[in-house]
Amino acid sequence: MAEQEKGMSIFLDVFRRADKNDDGALSLEEFGAFFADGVITDEELGNLFRDIDTHKTNNLDTGELCTYFSHHLGPFKEMFGALEDLNHSMTKALNQSAQQYPTASFIEQFVSRFLMREMLNQLVAVQKPVETASDFIDEKAIKERSGISQASVSVDVQGETPGAVPGWLGRRARRQYSSQYSTGSEGVPAVDLW
């Protein structure tokens, strides 16, 4: 892929999580299983898949997925760029901390633990309003579309499929399994920290 637009590495992670058979392409089934949100219908998902499939191969590649979303980011474009930078900085800081912690003084170890807890507190403070807004718009969309047969949402959690769940619940479960923070920005696995 040519020079990647800022913030698009997030969608490489989306692609990796959606590509359940790791063949480098998203089938309609993989696309539907990942993107179904309890609001959109199977037919609408199929139409969206065909819109994104500009190569007309009946499979999506990372370029098609990134191109589609890059044209629809709107006010989120800057945020995805910031998240990409945050991921890179966090990975670097955690790797350095993991390497230095065992030989650091007792006080330096205390400071590392404090800074890590505070980093977590700050991330949670940012997460809460996004989660609240996301849940609100999902619930509103579900109410507006009641009576329409939405695509079922199933969450594959390490090989287990707990069944159809509303979109916001499914998304919440999938968030926990994002590999975005398990690899560095160059795709290098992060150090097993502790």
Rank of each mutant, 00 (worst) to 15 (best):
G63D: 09
K92S: 10
F76E: 15
F49A: 05
Q96F: 08
M90P: 02
K56Y: 07
D51C: 12
F76N: 14
D61P: 06
R50V: 13
S89E: 11
M90H: 11
D53Y: 01
A98W: 00
K77G: 08
L65E: 06
S89N: 13
N58M: 15
N95K: 10
N95A: 09
S97G: 04
Q96G: 02
G63N: 13
N87W: 01
F49K: 04
N95C: 08
G81K: 05
A82F: 04
N95W: 06
D61Y: 05
M79H: 14
N58W: 14
A93R: 03
A98G: 13
L83P: 04
M90S: 11
E84V: 04
N58C: 11
A98I: 01
Q99K: 13
N87S: 13
L94V: 07
G63K: 06
A93Q: 02
Y68H: 14
S70Y: 08
E64W: 02
T62N: 10
P75K: 10
T54E: 10
N87L: 05
D51I: 15
T54I: 09
G81L: 04
F49Y: 05
P75R: 12
I52F: 02
Y68I: 05
T57N: 06
H88G: 11
F80Q: 09
S89W: 01
D53E: 05
P75H: 09
A82W: 00
H88A: 15
G81S: 10
T57H: 10
A93L: 01
M79P: 03
L86K: 15
L83D: 05
L73C: 09
H88P: 01
P75N: 09
